[in-house]
Amino acid sequence: MNPINYLYLAALLFTIGAAGVLLRRNAIVVFMCIELMLNACNLAFVSFSRMHGNLDGQIMAFFTMVVAAAEVVIGLAIIVMIFRSRHSASVDDASLMKL
Protein backbone atom coordinates (compact mmCIF):
# COMPACT_ATOMS: atom_id res chain seq x y z
CA MET A 1 0.00 0.00 0.00
CA ASN A 2 1.22 3.43 -0.80
CA PRO A 3 1.08 5.97 2.08
CA ILE A 4 -0.67 8.30 -0.35
CA ASN A 5 -3.86 6.50 0.62
CA TYR A 6 -3.75 8.41 3.90
CA LEU A 7 -4.12 11.55 1.87
CA TYR A 8 -7.16 10.21 0.07
CA LEU A 9 -8.66 9.33 3.42
CA ALA A 10 -7.90 12.83 4.71
CA ALA A 11 -9.56 14.35 1.62
CA LEU A 12 -12.62 12.18 2.12
CA LEU A 13 -12.93 13.06 5.78
CA PHE A 14 -12.48 16.75 5.01
CA THR A 15 -15.22 16.68 2.41
CA ILE A 16 -17.56 14.84 4.77
CA GLY A 17 -16.86 17.43 7.43
CA ALA A 18 -17.50 20.28 5.04
CA ALA A 19 -20.76 18.71 3.91
CA GLY A 20 -21.74 18.41 7.57
CA VAL A 21 -21.12 22.09 8.13
CA LEU A 22 -23.39 22.88 5.23
CA LEU A 23 -26.14 20.47 6.16
CA ARG A 24 -26.51 20.52 9.92
CA ARG A 25 -28.33 23.24 11.78
CA ASN A 26 -27.32 22.41 15.34
CA ALA A 27 -24.40 24.71 16.10
CA ILE A 28 -22.68 22.09 18.22
CA VAL A 29 -22.78 19.52 15.45
CA VAL A 30 -21.52 22.13 13.01
CA PHE A 31 -18.66 22.65 15.36
CA MET A 32 -17.93 18.96 15.50
CA CYS A 33 -17.82 18.89 11.74
CA ILE A 34 -15.27 21.68 11.80
CA GLU A 35 -13.22 19.60 14.21
CA LEU A 36 -13.50 16.73 11.78
CA MET A 37 -12.13 18.90 9.02
CA LEU A 38 -9.25 20.02 11.19
CA ASN A 39 -8.46 16.42 12.04
CA ALA A 40 -8.47 15.52 8.38
CA CYS A 41 -5.93 18.24 7.81
CA ASN A 42 -3.82 16.94 10.64
CA LEU A 43 -3.83 13.51 9.09
CA ALA A 44 -2.64 14.99 5.84
CA PHE A 45 0.11 16.88 7.66
CA VAL A 46 1.29 13.78 9.42
CA SER A 47 1.28 11.83 6.16
CA PHE A 48 3.25 14.56 4.43
CA SER A 49 5.71 14.51 7.31
CA ARG A 50 6.26 10.87 6.68
CA MET A 51 6.55 11.23 2.95
CA HIS A 52 9.08 14.06 3.13
CA GLY A 53 11.00 12.54 5.97
CA ASN A 54 11.06 15.53 8.27
CA LEU A 55 9.08 16.56 11.31
CA ASP A 56 7.83 19.97 10.18
CA GLY A 57 4.49 18.51 9.17
CA GLN A 58 4.01 17.13 12.63
CA ILE A 59 4.79 20.56 14.10
CA MET A 60 2.08 22.04 11.90
CA ALA A 61 -0.37 19.43 13.10
CA PHE A 62 0.63 20.22 16.65
CA PHE A 63 -0.06 23.91 16.18
CA THR A 64 -3.33 23.07 14.50
CA MET A 65 -4.37 21.18 17.60
CA VAL A 66 -3.47 24.10 19.87
CA VAL A 67 -5.38 26.53 17.74
CA ALA A 68 -8.31 24.11 17.52
CA ALA A 69 -8.38 23.90 21.30
CA ALA A 70 -8.51 27.67 21.60
CA GLU A 71 -11.15 27.83 18.90
CA VAL A 72 -13.31 25.22 20.59
CA VAL A 73 -13.18 27.07 23.88
CA ILE A 74 -14.31 30.34 22.34
CA GLY A 75 -16.76 28.75 19.94
CA LEU A 76 -18.50 26.77 22.64
CA ALA A 77 -18.63 29.85 24.87
CA ILE A 78 -20.34 31.72 22.06
CA ILE A 79 -22.78 28.88 21.51
CA VAL A 80 -23.63 28.84 25.19
CA MET A 81 -24.16 32.55 25.18
CA ILE A 82 -26.37 32.48 22.12
CA PHE A 83 -28.33 29.63 23.64
CA ARG A 84 -28.88 31.63 26.79
CA SER A 85 -30.35 34.58 24.98
CA ARG A 86 -32.24 32.79 22.20
CA HIS A 87 -32.96 29.40 23.72
CA SER A 88 -31.86 27.74 20.56
CA ALA A 89 -28.65 26.29 19.24
CA SER A 90 -29.75 26.39 15.64
CA VAL A 91 -27.51 28.37 13.31
CA ASP A 92 -30.52 29.20 11.16
CA ASP A 93 -32.20 31.05 13.98
CA ALA A 94 -29.39 33.55 14.11
CA SER A 95 -30.26 34.93 10.70
CA LEU A 96 -30.73 38.58 11.43
CA MET A 97 -27.94 39.67 9.14
CA LYS A 98 -30.06 39.99 6.08
CA LEU A 99 -31.79 42.65 4.12
Binding site: A19, G20, V29, C33
Partner: peptide
Protein backbone atom coordinates in the same frame (compact mmCIF):
# COMPACT_ATOMS: atom_id res chain seq x y z
CA UNK B 1 -13.26 6.19 10.35
CA UNK B 2 -15.34 7.11 7.29
CA UNK B 3 -18.37 5.46 8.79
CA UNK B 4 -17.77 7.40 11.99
CA UNK B 5 -17.49 10.63 10.07
CA UNK B 6 -20.69 9.93 8.18
CA UNK B 7 -22.40 9.06 11.44
CA UNK B 8 -21.24 12.36 12.87
CA UNK B 9 -23.06 14.32 10.25
Amino acid sequence: AVIGALATI
